[in-house]
């Protein structure tokens, strides 16, 4: 633990960015690599289960995976009535990936950063105070906005596919107040369109950022008192990480089903 609480918190909330000085073209390699690894874990486990799928004698892992797939399939079936080969895999990816990214919050806040500092110091000869690592990708706006903006493009794509380009543009100018006040409709539609990814991204980001921050604050307590707050918060957080992953998935399905339906 760093001597100074402010420094400690700041250190924990700084991304490992390349290049260091930032700017738009910098990349948070911690967010990027952690989420990439988690994504590969997701794909690896699921393809493995798909490869070794047993009809008669499913193992526990297979049943668990099936449970998730079934849950996603049911949600999609209940909400999304059009035919689409994309939406269910999209929803599954969102759910599992967000869940895994959120789960990183349950690791001890100092574990991976400390290991990173050791590696940075001894392998790369860096100053440990300047080795940063934030392990929760979903507490990074870049990750959440990357997903929510992708969802927004999917919304646009689904709308165009369902109604045709002309139909979609017509809808942008004619709903919800009728074609007489076209521009006002357009403004409303754009606000509605943009509000979706922003709310999606910020909801997830806010929850995970707050959760991470509270874990960091708890880590500032003396070690014998940490469990008192840390355990209840971690248990509560199990609910939050699952719920946030579910909410992100669910809202994605809802938005996409709205996109293909007529207003």
């Amino acid at each position: 633990m760093a001597g100074n609480a402010t420094d400690y918190i700041k250190h924990h909330l700084t991304h490992a960015t390349v290049p260091h000085d930032g700017g738009f073209w910098a990349i948070n390699i911690d967010t990027f690599s952690v989420s990439l690894v988690l994504g590969f874990i997701f794909l690896f486990v699921f393809t493995r289960v798909a490869k070794t799928f047993s009809m008669e004698n499913p193992g526990r892992l297979q049943l668990f995976i099936e449970m998730i797939v079934e849950m996603v399939a049911n949600q999609v079936k209940d909400v999304f009535h059009a035919k689409s080969a994309v939406i269910a895999p999209l929803a599954l990816t969102i759910f599992v990936w967000v869940f895994l990214m959120n789960t990183m919050d349950l690791l001890p806040v100092d574990l991976l950063p400390y290991i990173a500092q050791l590696i940075g110091e001894h392998v790369f000869g860096a100053d440990p105070h300047h080795v940063y690592l934030r392990v929760v990708p979903s507490a990074d706006v870049n990750a959440t906005f990357a997903m929510s903006l992708s969802v927004m493009f999917c919304i646009i794509g689904f709308s165009i596919k369902a109604k045709g380009l002309g139909g979609y543009i017509h809808e942008l100018f004619s709903a919800p107040f009728g074609p007489k006040v076209g521009p006002i409709n357009f403004v409303f539609q754009i606000i509605e369109l943009l509000a979706k990814p922003i709310s999606l991204a910020l909801r997830l980001f806010g929850n995970m950022y707050a959760g991470e921050l509270i874990f960091i604050l708890i880590a500032l307590l003396p070690f014998w008192a940490q469990w008192l707050l840390g355990a209840p918060w971690a248990i509560f957080h199990i609910l939050i990480i699952t719920l946030q992953a579910f909410v992100f998935m669910m809202l994605t399905i809802v938005y996409l089903s709205l996109a293909v339906e007529d207003h």
Binding site: F24, W25, T31, F32, V86, P89, N142, A143, A146, S150
Partner: peptide, 16 residues
């Protein structure tokens, strides 16, 4: 917001 967003979006697209 920085280029991580683009990287994440690409990762997301590949995963999907």
């Amino acid at each position: 917001i920085n280029a991580t967003l683009l990287g994440q979006a690409i990762t997301f697209a590949i995963l999907v």
